[in-house]
């Protein structure tokens, strides 16, 4: 029933694009223009770095994807849904196809690692047996099955980020949006997180990751989209970071 309704808002391009932006502009209510004339297509199973100076508009770009913000002008489709035209009450169903990861993890402090992950399934009314099975599965994937009962405060930064990643992928989203996922982590831990994201990408999930980490971008080569002053200044497959840290 839900899916039938959703089909009505699908853009029937028949393409395999996970994200499409057509002439996107974003001006915040205070008058700051964070993005202008953005045109981007991200295909299924891509791994894309979003780079650029501080304040360039990277986070705004990410927020438009998971519809934390709406564009002032232009069209965005995510996983085939035109999310600009989407009715308010259908937004949750689009979000189920997007996993979001933040620099500060955003775990719930009073819930254990297991509960934090299971929470994402509970609140979309997944049957409890499926929750148990799938939660343990992703905890294993991120290598923290043995820490299932720990509270976030009892975990290291890297471990907390792994739990956040487990929560982001637990509902099998088509795309992961990660805004500086290694921003708070030391280099070694960051590499662990990158290996995990690469594994997830390898298993078929599109990944869009904003980052300031030159070493990672230049070593683990992927498509690079650079944003400067709200505009795309560069878009290269297997690109370089291109800035000094």
């Amino acid at each position: 029933m839900q899916d039938v309704e959703m089909d009505k808002v699908r853009i029937l391009t028949g393409s395999d694009n996970v994200i499409e932006m057509q002439d996107i502009w974003k001006t915040y209510p205070d008058g700051t223009t964070a993005l202008q004339a953005i045109n981007v297509v991200i295909e299924r199973n891509e791994f894309v770095y979003i780079v650029g100076p501080s304040g360039a508009g990277k986070s705004t770009f990410m927020k438009l994807i998971y519809r934390e913000e709406v564009p002032t002008k232009g069209q965005i489709s995510v996983n085939g849904f035109n999310i600009g035209k989407l009715k308010q009450r259908k937004i949750p169903y689009v979000r189920r196809n997007i996993g979001v990861i933040f620099q500060d993890y955003k775990l719930l402090p009073k819930l254990s690692a297991y509960e934090n992950v299971a929470f994402a399934m509970e609140v979309i009314e997944t049957p409890s047996r499926a929750i148990r099975r799938r939660t343990m599965e992703v905890l294993e994937l991120v290598g923290l099955k043995h820490k299932a009962g720990s509270l976030p405060a009892q975990l290291s930064g890297g471990e907390q980020q792994r739990i956040a990643i487990a929560r982001a992928i637990v509902n099998n989203p088509a795309v992961i949006v990660a805004d500086e996922p290694t921003g708070n982590l030391d280099p070694e831990t960051s590499w662990g997180i990158m290996k995990l994201l690469e594994e997830i990408n390898f298993r078929g999930t599109t990944i869009v990751m904003a980052t300031h980490n030159k070493e990672i971008v230049n070593t683990l080569r992927k498509r690079v989209i650079a944003i400067e002053k709200g505009s795309i200044s560069r878009d290269e497959p297997r690109g370089e970071y291109g800035y000094e840290n």
Binding site: Q88, R89, Y93, V94, L108, V123, E125, N171
Partner: peptide, 17 residues
């Protein structure tokens, strides 16, 4: 607030929240 934010993020419906 935190919890509600995460519920929205992972796609809980308004009525569920």
């Amino acid at each position: 607030r935190r919890e509600i934010g995460i519920m929205k993020l992972v796609g809980a419906t308004n009525s569920f929240i």
